[in-house]
Design a protein around this nucleic acid. Structure first.
Lengths: 153, 153
DNA sequence: GGAAAATATTTTAGATATAAAATAACAAGA
DNA sequence: TCTTGTTATTTTATATCTAAAATATTTTCC
């Protein structure tokens, strides 16, 4: 039995499943709300943060993207009034983002749709299987991948 | 117990695992070979296709990207001589891509590294667990996500 | 208090993606 | 053979992303 290629097979399945679902969810958000999945991620992070909001740096970490990406994805959301950006009164370097009332409402609508979409996509799985899936996914260790060669330069 | 949010939880885990691994693999390819994971995907598809190569349209399907993306990602690979593009003798509209000798060699090197990276990242899982993971991932149905509202327009 | 270092964010340049329009080539019927 | 429609690909415009440089602000140390 070719157990020696199972890891790559699992990785290809993982990539296909994730890309497929991400593409479908992104299309759903764009079609129904005119926003990308990236913007939903921002709203979601700010919703969890509540009234006190999040600093730009903290938002960057939650989104797991670069600082430049955060600046760019927040810009249209500020422009459209879904989130607001205020300078920290104590530290002039710090920008603090939080949801506006309008943003809270739109996020609630998006989250409800999102929840339904995901339930439909996972309909063939039992809750126990979903837990198993999560447990398995948590065993993957991307940080084990060596930065190797060029790093020696 | 809150079984009613398991699907979203599983989806978030799936997204985190996939993005994390994809980011690590992409960084590895860039550091060690100066190519992105997208280019590796192209080389991989053409390697599987063998000497006869793939039409642009077929390549687009395998990559699960847009036709424009295929044009753009193949351009630097042609320029650097890893793949070649020839017009179909029978149908002037058709472009056929295939690996060059240089491309075959570079792909072999990249694939070997890739295999090792993935083995390391999945080291905590048994082959049986990897199979279970694949089986669970294959039950996800992104196509179930309705294109709803805007489509009615 | 002021220069130097550290920190937080934005800007810029380049890579890669999509969607839609444009181009090019083939096919099929009058 | 035209002309009309279809198909295959590329081009263009726009959206995001990263990495690195630039900017702005605060902190630290003399």
């Amino acid at each position: 039995m070719s157990d020696d290629r199972e890891a790559v097979r699992a990785w290809l399945s993982l990539l296909a499943a994730s890309r497929g679902l991400e593409k479908a969810v992104d299309a759903g958000f764009r079609n129904n709300f005119g926003h990308s999945i990236s913007r939903f991620d921002v709203l979601s992070a700010l919703d969890r943060a509540g009234a006190q909001g999040l600093r730009a740096g903290a938002l960057t970490e939650k989104l797991m993207v670069s600082d430049g990406a955060t600046t760019q994805v927040t810009a249209p959301l500020v422009r459209e009034g879904l989130i607001k950006r205020v300078a920290d009164p104590g530290d002039g370097r710090v920008a603090i983002f939080s949801l506006t009332k309008k943003g809270e409402k739109i996020f609630a609508d998006m989250a409800a749709e999102h929840r339904q979409w995901i339930d439909e996509a996972f309909a063939r799985m039992t809750p126990a299987q979903m837990k198993t899936l999560r447990r398995l996914l948590n065993q993957i260790e991307p940080e084990k991948i060596a930065r190797s060669k060029k790093d020696a330069a």
